[in-house]
Every structure is written in C-alpha cells, then in structure tokens.
Simulated assay, not measured.
Amino acid sequence: MRLLNLPGIRPWAGPPPPVPAHLEPIAVSGFTLAQTFGSHSTLRLKISSHHSGNHCVPHLPALLPSHSICSPQIPIAYSLISLFLLLQGFPGVIGCIDGTHIPIIAPSVNEGDYVNRKSFHSINVQIICDAANIITNVEAKWPGSVHDSRIFRECTLSTKFGHGEFTGYLLGDRGYPCLPYLLTPYPDPEPGPQQRYNLAHCRTRARVEMTIGMLKARFQCLQRLRVTPERACDIIVACVILHNIATIRGEHCPSEPNISSDPNHEHPDPPTDIQDGRAVRDTVCHNHFL
C-alpha cells in the first residue's frame, strides 16, 4: 500500500518557494511527467538544472516510504472531523473514499483482468481525501475488473480501521458495504432523518469526487496511459503526490474539475451491508439528523 498524508499544512500566501531537497526527486518526476505526457499542471517548481529527470519515475515508489505517514494522529483526526463537520454537518468524518478508473492500453499479460464493466482496460484506483482536497491514501495497483469493495477489504487501511486504530468514519458510495467505520447511504431512505442523512452524506462525499476531478484536470495523461500497468501505477502515484503539493501551495486547477460522478464508475451490484455497519449508520442518523 502507498499511503500519503500531509495534514495541518496551509497554502502559501506568497510566491511558491523552492522545492525542499528531500522532495526534489518527486518534483523532478513531475517535471518528467509533464514533458512526457503533456501534463497541464500549474505547479511552478524551482529545480536545479543538473537534474535530467529521465529516470526518476521508475524509481519513485522506493522514495515513498520515507515521505509517508501511515495513520492520522488523534489531534489530526479531530481536526479532520471538525473540517468535514463544517462542510455539510456530517459528524465524525475523517475521510471520503471512492474509486476511479484510469484507462490504459491493453497489456500483453493477463489482458482480460484489466477489462472493467465498461469494457475498456484500466487500473482501478482507490482514493481517500480530506476536507481540503488532500489525497491521504491512494491504492494504485488493482486491474480494472476488481470491485471497489474488494480493493478496500484487502488494503492495510481496512485492517487498521477494523482494529480500532482510527477515530471517525469514512464516507463511501454504494460500491462499498456499510461498515462500522465506512458509512454508505441508505439504499431506500424513508422521509425524514434518513433522507436528511443521505443528503448530508452525498454533499460531504462530493469532496472526493471533486478531488479526483482536480487530479485528472491537473494531469491530462490520466485520461489514458499508454504504458505497462506497472509503470501506469507509478505514474498515478506520482501525479497524486504532485496534486498534494499543488493543493498545499494553493495552486489553481488549469480547468474546472468535473465534480459529477464518474460515468465509468457505476455500481450495478452493490455489496451487502454488514449488520454492525447498519447499526452505526442508524445511530448516526437518529442522533444527528432528527
């Protein structure tokens, strides 16, 4: 798993400063991406001219562990909850989760595994973001035929939630089962609290759709990657890192992100909700949306 968490940092008020030395390899990877794949990122980087950048992207995953934070600390978790509460009044949220399909060319090995429900080849990428559009978790390693619920079930983050290592909830759509730590909408809401719960859930969870839209607007290469699946995953993670840097610096997207649901990411067969998850959802609904 590749975890990214950059909490508690505010956008720069003035001109962007030079990239810190420990982030230069990542920044150079972004420069290489821009040259190779035509990224339209507005990120302005000051990088020493002695970096060629020609071989940084393939080695990027080896750099990630030293710049990763695997779980939000308790004060940070409460800060995230407060920010999400201010958005639409949904309590206890520390992140919004969704999947997005990144199209790729047909691979030469296990080609059928990469064909998704829309009949094109893709990587199914799991994204979790905070209220400030920072991507705090990315899973970029699964072929397009794999369901969102399986990706979350088999990731380390799910195990950590199951062991009670986090305080708060994730919000997800009907592509996920309702769990005690991952709340989904009511499938057939009754008038009153359930409808108000669903409305607040939808408006809060829209943050991850906006974040994915911003990521794809900044990096047009993600419209279709003409590389092997392994290299595609490296490029996706590099784009996520650069998106976070741009967001922290207050950089604007080159175009308005599409915040509507991804038409390539429908869930015709939603997974079965877990009883304990339904009980937590009912408690949240009746305590906060009466």
Rank of each mutant, 00 (worst) to 15 (best):
R2Q: 08
G8C: 12
I9P: 00
P18H: 03
P18I: 07
V19L: 06
I26H: 06
T42K: 14
L43D: 02
K46V: 07
H50A: 13
H50D: 15
C56L: 14
H59W: 03
L60P: 05
S66H: 15
I69L: 15
I76S: 09
A77W: 03
L80E: 09
L83N: 14
I104V: 10
P107T: 01
E111V: 00
D113L: 00
K118S: 08
H121C: 11
I127W: 02
I127K: 00
H147P: 05
D148C: 01
D148W: 00
I151Y: 04
F152H: 11
T156L: 10
T156H: 12
L157H: 01
L157F: 13
E165G: 00
G172A: 08
G172C: 07
G175R: 03
C178F: 04
L179R: 13
L182N: 09
T184K: 07
L199P: 00
L199Q: 15
L199S: 14
R203Q: 14
R207P: 00
V208S: 04
E209S: 13
R218M: 10
C221P: 08
Q223P: 01
R224Q: 15
V227M: 08
T228I: 03
D234H: 15
I241Q: 08
L242Q: 12
T247S: 13
P254A: 06
P254H: 05
S255D: 13
N258R: 08
S261D: 07
H265R: 14
P268T: 02
P268N: 01
A279V: 12
V280Q: 07
C285K: 04
